[in-house]
Design a protein around this nucleic acid. Structure first.
Lengths: 215, 215
DNA sequence: CAACTGAACTGAACCGTTGAGTTCATCTGA
DNA sequence: TCAGATGAACTCAACGGTTCAGTTCAGTTG
């Protein structure tokens, strides 16, 4: 009888290179054209034979999930945790807050791919139910704890008065990053000037409300 | 020569009923299954022959745009403009503000279909470029002027101090409705209790910052 | 009321295309 | 040598859209 080779993904150094090229091309095309893009197009974009694609990933759906999961681990959070940490020991809280907010907003604004990914997943969620969960857990929840920790520390230091931490966190997100996410999903972008005013105004509003001077 | 009948959509009482049934079924299936759903399925769901569908709408794309545009005119804004108007002549500004905000948030939260529609359009935007524009103009921009008017009036009355109206409007949206839109597009919903805290906290934060007592 | 009319509807078969996935003989490079 | 890559040709199913012969139904006429 024959050698009974069950279909397994190829391994080896060159195989890995091809694999990366395929994922990269697939990601780009999925993002640009949606899930409806053809496998031939993906193979061509990757500079690879269609058969090779099917040797690595057994199906289009498997390739799609591979793209999503790989994209999930990669660009997480940007530089936000570092600046968030520095917040608790800053001398000028408002200035440090504005700096951190600016970096954070910049990360959200430039990563247009993240928004596109979210739309893709939402649109194709019915075909990949388990992907929604993976996305949600890797989404904003990832550096959510960092923000929570920073706010709690500031409250413990007496520099902020936060009666309801959960609400405060969402409000902070809302004032700083949600506008860019919402407008982005509408296809429009907030210009630099308005972005700046939103950062400063948002921070001032937040500190105005939760600062120790006020009730 | 022959009767030269150019293809025109059927008219008459019975035709109109069928047409509505088709649009309703198509909307439901597009929302649930995405644009990839088959015309046969839509016809079946509408209790109608596929030919009838093609007699009314010449193509799948035409049907899709019909669904979108019909959905655009229908549930607009809810009851927000009325409550917004009452704001400028309310005795207790905070209480009236909270009432208005609650109604507004409720409208956004219950209309889960609106969010799903937005995702659909975003996902299929490359196939229907003109639809994105129609959506944007009918989206939040529709009662945006009402909010702007109310805030301006309150500022003129001296009950609010708003140096930057554009920023203030976005902040109001951000504090009250954006959280529900963002979470909704992630597939999760904000529970009633947190919703309530966000409404009250958001209004307090806004009034705290823009009220005449503060700078 | 019965017969007629014509537009709208039906059901099923059908066509052409597209796209996922496979097969296979052949090439390539460590 | 041999696993992995290649390309071209192929299968198969789904889907958009059409055709057609026959049916429903609202309204009109005698």
């Amino acid at each position: 009888m024959s050698s009974e080779t069950v279909k397994r993904p190829p391994s080896g150094p060159r195989a890995e290179a091809k694999r990366q090229a395929i994922v990269r091309a697939a990601r780009e095309l999925f993002l640009r054209e949606g899930f409806g893009v053809g496998m031939d197009a993906i193979a061509a974009e990757a500079g690879v034979s269609k058969v090779t694609v099917y040797n690595h990933f057994g199906s289009k759906e498997a390739l799609f999930t591979a793209v999503i999961t790989s994209a999930l681990d990669e660009p997480l959070a940007g530089a936000s945790p570092a600046t968030l940490e520095g917040l608790t020991e800053a001398e000028d809280l408002r200035a440090a807050f504005i700096d951190a907010a600016r970096a954070w907003v910049h990360a959200v604004r430039t990563n247009r791919e993240v928004a596109a990914l979210r739309n893709l997943i939402a649109a194709e969620a019915h075909r990949f139910p388990e992907l929604g969960h993976a996305w949600k857990s890797h989404g904003p929840a990832s550096h959510h704890p960092a923000v929570a920790g920073a706010l709690r520390t500031l409250a413990d230091q007496g520099r902020l008065v936060i009666p309801d931490l959960e609400t405060a966190i969402i409000q902070l997100y809302a004032l700083l990053v949600f506008p860019h996410m919402v407008f982005g999903s509408y296809g429009t972008q907030i210009d630099d000037d308005l972005t700046n005013r939103l950062v400063i105004g948002g921070v001032d509003m937040f500190l105005d409300h939760y600062g120790p001077n006020q009730t």
